[in-house]
Design a protein around this nucleic acid. Structure first.
Length: 271
DNA sequence: AAGTGGACCTGCTAGC
DNA sequence: TGCTAGCAGGTCCACT
C-alpha cells in the first residue's frame, strides 16, 4: 500500500507518541533490503526525536543519528504498548518506554537503515537524488516541464521514477494521468507546458484526496481484501481493465510499461 | 546522461 | 482439492 499518502498517514499515526521516548531494546527478524548498518546495541538508550517524511521514506531521529525507514511494496508499521509476540513477517522492533515500533513486511523489500544524519552516510545516498515534494510550492507545471525536457521515457515512468517529483506510485501515477487526460505512454519531453500544469495539479489533488481518505485504506492494512476493496472504490482506472470509463464509457485498457501495469482510458487520455 | 532490464521476496488468485 | 503460472502498492543497480 505504501505510496506517499499511506506513508504520511503512517507517520502521523505514531510520530507524536514515540517522540521523546527512550529506546530500551532492538529486535531484528529476517534481513530486509539492506543491513541495519550499526550494532543494534548502539540504538539502546538513545532518545527518539521527530519523525519526518521525504518521499516514501521516513526519518526517525535519534540522538546520535537516526533510522531511515522504507515500507517497500508490502511493509507496514505499527506502534503500540502491546503488540504481542513477533510473527514470521515482523522483521524489526524498536522497543521504547512508551511502546514498540514494529515493521511488518512479508516481501522484505522494505528497509531500516542507520545513518548519522539524513544528509550524511547511507541516508544521503538514498535521499540525495529525490525529486521535489508534491505538496511543496516548488512542484509546479513549470518545474515538471523543465525536468521533462528532452526526455524520451514515457510520462508515466518519469513520474514513477521519483527523480522529478516524489510520492507517486503505480496507482496514483495512473490516477493522476487520468485526471489530467494524458496518455501514460506519451514521451515525457512531448508533454506541453499547459498539460504539465494540469498534471501537476492533478497529481497534487490525487495525493491529497488519498491522504484525506488514507486512514480508511490503512485501517484495513493487514486485511488484504479490505484494502483492495477501498482501492477499487477510489480508483477510476487502476485495476479496472475491461470496465467502462466512469467519465466517457470507453473500455479501460491495461498495458505494461517498465515491467509495471499501467491502466488508462483510451477515450479520455490523449498524447 | 539517459534508457533498459534484472534483481530482491513472499503471498494471493485465476486457471487448469 | 491441488498444483502452477502470473501478478502485486518500490526502487536500486549494472549494463549499454
Amino acid at each position: 500500500m505504501p505510496e506517499l499518502p499511506e506513508v504520511e498517514v503512517t507517520r502521523r499515526s505514531f510520530a507524536e507518541r514515540i517522540a521523546g521516548a527512550r529506546v530500551t531494546a532492538v529486535r531484528l527478524g529476517k534481513p530486509l533490503r539492506w543491513p541495519l548498518g550499526v550494532d543494534p546495541q548502539e540504538l539502546v538508550a538513545q532518545r527518539v526525536g521527530p519523525v519526518t517524511r521525504r518521499g516514501k521514506y521516513l526519518w526517525l531521529a535519534l540522538e546520535r543519528g537516526g533510522l531511515l525507514l522504507h515500507l517497500g511494496m508490502s511493509g507496514s508499521l505499527a506502534f503500540g504498548a502491546r503488540l504481542g509476540t513477533p510473527g514470521p513477517h515482523d522483521h524489526f522492533d524498536l522497543v521504547t518506554q512508551r511502546g514498540t515500533l514494529r515493521l511488518t513486511d512479508p516481501r522484505r523489500f522494505g528497509a531500516v537503515v542507520w545513518s548519522p544524519a539524513p544528509h550524511e552516510g547511507a541516508a544521503s545516498k538514498l535521499l540525495g537524488g529525490l525529486g521535489v515534494e508534491p505538496f511543496d510550492d516548488a512542484f509546479t507545471g513549470a518545474h515538471l516541464h523543465a525536468a521533462l525536457r528532452g526526455r524520451r521515457v514515457s510520462i508515466k515512468e518519469a513520474l514513477l521514477g521519483g527523480r522529478i517529483v516524489v510520492g507517486a506510485g503505480n496507482i496514483y501515477a495512473c490516477e493522476a494521468l487520468f485526471e489530467a487526460g494524458i496518455d501514460p505512454r506519451t514521451p515525457g519531453g512531448r508533454v506541453s507546458r499547459a498539460r504539465c500544469d494540469l498534471l501537476a495539479a492533478a497529481l497534487r489533488r490525487t495525493l491529497l484526496r488519498a491522504l484525506q481518505t488514507g486512514g480508511s485504506t490503512l485501517r484495513d492494512f493487514r486485511d488484504t481484501h479490505g484494502a483492495a476493496g477501498e482501492f477499487q472504490r477510489e480508483a477510476r482506472v487502476y485495476g479496472r481493465a475491461g470496465q467502462p470509463c466512469v467519465r466517457c464509457g470507453a473500455t479501460i485498457r491495461r498495458v505494461v510499461q517498465g515491467q509495471r501495469a499501467t491502466f488508462y482510458c483510451p477515450g479520455c487520455q490523449k498524447r
